[in-house]
Design a protein around this nucleic acid. Structure first.
Lengths: 144, 144
DNA sequence: CAAGATTGACTGTTCAATCTTA
DNA sequence: TAAGATTGAACAGTCAATCTTG
């Protein structure tokens, strides 16, 4: 049985810890400004970058479960930040698109988010170190 | 305003992704064997290593919110994996300790957990790379 | 009043089942 | 039958209030 090396276990443990610590800094910053959670930002950004998309595509890019995304979109839609539009091509699905309000919200969130990233990562690693970390972390997200 | 560098943003983004990917591998492995979630393992391990402790101490080590831990301990206790015992010294609190069943469960979880860590981290990074990643990630968890 | 811990009510997540169309 | 998407009910997480003791 392939038991992980100490180095792998240590990297795993610290990945969990670093994630918890960094996310809580960012979420706290957003909450302090009365802004929506991180997850909303991700969806809004993906919709700005990728244009109108089907939930299935968003799901794959954001690594979310389908039922999870369904309710997340409900909330975003209720807040007026995204709109759904029926598809003629495949009547099972529909397109999700960001609204003007959604873009405005994403823009309002970014400065707060950016400062929090700086506090959580930028202040703790040099650019060279952050680049190394990004490379190694990128390898962990690759599907086998 | 200190805007984060591209390197910092990239490290942040990939931290989130790597965490999501790695955790889902591990949680899926545990679930497939009918075992409890990762979080339970963390509590059980901490109680084995650190001996009987007050919830406050567990909370600090595991980076959990107090109300969160309170309900997590309820579940562990209901499953017979931990026990609570009143403290005479400070009657507000109590000690939490792992039971024999709890130790047995932790031991059953470990091989599954270990294989999953290997798949999520060990198979993707060399030991040298994992050591570098662990060092950098450790710096992110340090309180300012 | 402050610290340790819990609880009620609310919000969000998960699982399995369901519905519709391909 | 399978894929895209949603939903009811159960479960877990969050916030603010509460209780008890220091």
């Amino acid at each position: 049985m392939p038991t992980p090396s100490d180095a792998a276990v240590s990297a795993w443990t610290r990945l969990i810890r670093a994630h918890t610590a960094a996310v809580s800094v960012v979420e706290a910053a957003l909450k302090a400004e009365g802004l929506p959670p991180l997850e909303w930002y991700d969806v809004l950004l993906e919709l700005e970058r990728g244009g109108p998309q089907r939930p299935r595509d968003l799901q794959a890019r954001l690594l979310l479960a389908q039922y999870n995304l369904s309710r997340l979109l409900d909330r975003l839609s209720e807040a007026g930040l995204v709109a759904r539009e029926a598809l003629q091509a495949d009547k099972r699905g529909h397109l999700v698109m960001i609204s003007a309000e959604g873009s405005a919200m994403r823009a309002r969130m970014w400065p707060v988010y950016a400062r929090a990233i700086q506090a959580a990562v930028g202040d703790k690693l040099s650019d060279a170190e952050a680049t190394v970390a990004a490379d190694l972390l990128g390898r962990l997200a690759v599907r086998p």
